[in-house]
Simulated scan of single mutants.
Amino acid sequence: MFRHDGRVSDYDQDLLVDFRGVSFIRGGRTLVGPVDWQVELDERWVIIGPNGAGKTTLIRMASAEEFPSSGEAIIMGEKIGRTDMRDLRAMIGVSSSAIGNRIPVTEKVGDLVISAGYAILGRWREEYDTFDEERSEELLRQVGAWHVKDRTWGTLSEGERKRVLIARALMTNPELMILDEPGAGMDLGGREDLVAYLGELALDPDAPAIVMITHHVEEIPEGFTHAMILDEGKVIAQGLIDDVLNSDNLSRAFHQPIRVDRVAGRFFARRNTSEVEG
């Protein structure tokens, strides 16, 4: 197997994420793990669980932002701790509120998207070629944010910001795309528009592998193939989405009786009041 720098790798290049007994410990407390988890090139994963389950910590390790405390973490065929993390981050597109919070309110949307290819937040004195300009504009069109390209970050609604961050994450043509609660803070209409777009992206064979965090099964688009349920840093279940997202597993994770239904390809969950009353 060859690495992105042309040298031979001992690891499976079809596995974008390969976690073997990975744990993350802070202050003597295990926040995640141990976890065995593999993400392949054509997979679309959703990670779900209650607050404090360890979801964000897990994907920070998967996006080469954090080192595991123990276990073996291989990303893009590179073992964490033996390679330059900056090289790995360049191959991973991330959309998260943490990135959004770092963007100046005066930053122009078009500049924010195009500058992703240069690993900076916004335009300074760089000159971009025609290909970069055209790609950033096309991505804004694809996510339904073309109309805000000349506006500043501070004038955008929450839904518009989410779309722009996704366009920015796709700008580098990543092999892996990580979405941290893309529907958080959006109204119903905005959420449904975003879910529809992410469903189209998930079904696109040329799209990168996707890992998405959410608290709500209603936010899972059609086309997602795999799921992991976390609670208190432990894996409740993982695998094919139809096998994992069921009432029993979600009830265990959220510590109350949950009923899961699937309608027209979408998941819906609510408290099972009949069981509570019984």
Score class of each variant (00 low, 15 high):
160 E>D: 08
161 R>P: 11
161 R>D: 12
162 K>Q: 15
163 R>Q: 09
164 V>K: 09
167 A>N: 06
168 R>N: 09
168 R>V: 12
170 L>N: 02
170 L>Q: 01
170 L>F: 02
172 T>S: 15
172 T>K: 12
174 P>N: 06
176 L>D: 09
176 L>V: 10
176 L>K: 06
177 M>K: 00
177 M>W: 04
177 M>V: 12
177 M>G: 04
179 L>Q: 11
179 L>T: 10
180 D>W: 14
181 E>P: 06
181 E>Q: 10
183 G>S: 15
185 G>E: 11
185 G>A: 11
185 G>L: 12
186 M>T: 08
187 D>C: 09
187 D>F: 11
188 L>Q: 11
189 G>F: 08
189 G>Q: 10
191 R>V: 09
192 E>F: 05
193 D>G: 10
194 L>Q: 05
194 L>R: 05
195 V>L: 07
195 V>G: 07
195 V>Y: 05
195 V>T: 12
196 A>E: 15
196 A>D: 14
196 A>Q: 13
197 Y>F: 05
197 Y>P: 01
197 Y>L: 02
199 G>L: 03
200 E>R: 07
200 E>A: 09
200 E>N: 07
201 L>R: 00
202 A>D: 13
202 A>K: 03
203 L>S: 09
203 L>R: 02
203 L>G: 03
204 D>L: 07
204 D>I: 08
205 P>Q: 08
206 D>T: 15
208 P>A: 01
208 P>K: 01
211 V>I: 15
211 V>P: 00
213 I>N: 06
214 T>R: 14
214 T>K: 14
215 H>F: 13
215 H>V: 11
215 H>S: 13
216 H>A: 06
216 H>T: 08
217 V>L: 08
217 V>H: 01
217 V>G: 00
218 E>H: 14
219 E>N: 13
219 E>A: 08
220 I>R: 01
220 I>L: 08
222 E>N: 06
222 E>P: 03
223 G>N: 02
224 F>G: 02
225 T>S: 06
225 T>F: 03
226 H>K: 15
227 A>R: 06
228 M>Y: 10
229 I>P: 06
229 I>D: 06
229 I>N: 08
230 L>P: 13
